[in-house]
Amino acid sequence: MAQIQNPAKNNPIQDTATDPSNLQIDMPVRVRYNECDPMNLVHHATYPVWMEMARTELLRSRGIHYKELEEQGIFIVVAKLNIRFSKPAFYDDELIVRCTMKPTAGIKIEHEYKILRDNKVIASAETVVACVNHEGKAQPVPEFLRQN
Rank of each mutant, 00 (worst) to 15 (best):
M1E: 13
A2L: 14
I4H: 02
Q5P: 02
P7T: 05
A8K: 01
N11I: 00
N11D: 09
P12E: 12
P12M: 03
I13E: 09
D15S: 10
T16Q: 07
A17H: 12
P20V: 00
P20Q: 01
N22S: 04
N22H: 07
N22I: 00
Q24K: 13
Q24H: 02
I25W: 10
D26R: 11
M27I: 04
P28N: 04
P28S: 06
E35S: 12
C36Q: 00
C36L: 02
D37W: 07
D37G: 10
D37C: 07
M39V: 06
M39A: 10
V42T: 08
H44K: 03
A45M: 13
A45Y: 08
T46H: 06
Y47K: 00
Y47T: 00
V49T: 03
W50M: 01
E52A: 11
M53W: 00
R55T: 01
L59T: 07
S61F: 01
R62A: 04
G63E: 13
I64Q: 07
Y66E: 03
K67T: 09
L69P: 04
L69H: 09
E71A: 09
E71I: 04
E71Y: 02
G73W: 04
G73S: 06
A79D: 03
K80Q: 12
L81W: 10
N82P: 11
K87G: 15
P88R: 11
F90Q: 08
Y91T: 03
D92N: 14
E94A: 10
L95F: 11
L95P: 11
I96E: 03
I96F: 02
V97Y: 08
R98N: 12
C99K: 02
C99S: 12
M101E: 14
M101N: 05
M101K: 15
K102Q: 15
K102H: 14
P103H: 06
P103V: 08
T104R: 12
T104H: 13
I109R: 05
I109N: 06
I109K: 04
E110Q: 12
E110L: 14
H111K: 09
H111W: 06
Y113N: 01
K114A: 15
K114S: 15
I115L: 14
L116S: 11
R117L: 15
R117W: 11
D118S: 11
D118M: 09
N119R: 15
N119H: 15
K120T: 14
V121H: 10
V121D: 14
A123C: 10
S124D: 14
E126G: 10
V128W: 05
C131Q: 02
N133T: 02
K137N: 13
A138R: 09
Q139E: 15
P140R: 05
P140G: 06
V141T: 07
P142L: 06
P142I: 15
P142Q: 06
E143L: 12
E143D: 14
F144H: 03
F144E: 02
Q147C: 14
